[in-house]
Design a binder for these strands. Structure first.
Lengths: 159, 159
DNA sequence: TTTTTAGTTCTGCAAATAGAGAACTAAATT
DNA sequence: AATTTAGTTCTCTATTTGCAGAACTAAAAA
């Protein structure tokens, strides 16, 4: 037991870089490292203790991190008959999900801006209102194009 | 002095909603409220004390918040001859800037994923590597389309 | 020249976050 | 029946964050 816990320098580096990137997205450090490890890992099946040892995390941090990533659909695991361990791997579709979530967020923001715009329309300062309108148009454009890009990609995949 | 500090209920509501939205983007609460206030404000010229009173913030929080927003180009101010006060307003282009920044971030993420992919290519697990390749293609597509949308918008504005 | 105005900067604290470590649990092994 | 495995959950603490309040400053007004 305990193969697989040695990472190359390059892997180590990529885990930290990816970890930092995810931290800037608001992820907590340990969770970001677990995610990064599972993205970089080639075996596709790391156990609880592999993760714990590779990242030098406490059991609680490992457990909570794994739980959080499972609950949000970022990772998954397989099991093997006659073996109580879980073998974790990243769900690569998480990136697609993340991008779609960002898109949804942008739509919300657009809706909010529209509310602000409509309120401002009633007031006197037309110039400010018009600047806002410009941005709303831009966001609308983005919101329209986004699903199209998604479609284009789905088609591309099928070929 | 001290006109302009009374907000309508609708404005109050929009400030809080916008504030919360900005908090989810990682902004600190007080800064998010100042930004929201200046987005919602129709006068286009709120003073330090207007902001302080409208949001019931301490002087330090107001000062630091304003400073941060000025430094990051999110707001600006005008002055009036024979008047020491600064009159603040939102730089509406901040939204465009924010979206472009998100785009840059996505490009960084794509580059990182490519690094991970290239590393994985050397290893045995081709299936995982291929899934990753799919996502990279998708991100590349997005990265290509993004500038085009921006251009389209710029043209639209000119008409 | 004293006071007021329009802030900035410093000090300190309350709350939130992040994770370690210990205690616990439930199934499987010995 | 006792121990090991594969975790989970609880308790506690160090660090960070976010902001209030007080002290300070520099220009303008009285």
């Amino acid at each position: 037991m305990m193969e697989n816990t040695t990472l190359t320098d390059k892997q180590q580096e990529l885990i930290e870089k990816t970890g930092v990137m995810l931290e800037t997205k608001g992820w907590q450090p340990a969770v970001a490292r677990i995610m990064a490890l599972l993205l970089v890992d080639d075996s596709g099946e790391l156990t609880f203790d592999d993760i714990r040892n590779s990242l030098q995390l406490s059991k609680s941090a490992t457990s909570n991190g794994i739980q959080l990533l499972l609950n949000t659909g970022k990772i998954e695991y397989i099991t093997k008959t006659g073996d109580r361990k879980r073998y974790f791997r990243s769900r690569i579709s998480m990136f697609r999900d993340m991008i779609i979530a960002e898109h949804e967020k942008r739509k919300e923001m657009t809706a909010l801006l529209k509310e602000i715009y409509e309120m401002r329309e009633d007031f006197k300062n037309k110039k400010l209102a018009n600047n806002l309108k410009d941005i709303i148009n831009y966001m609308d454009l983005l919101n329209e194009e986004f699903p199209k890009i998604l479609e284009k990609w789905e088609k591309m995949k099928k070929q």
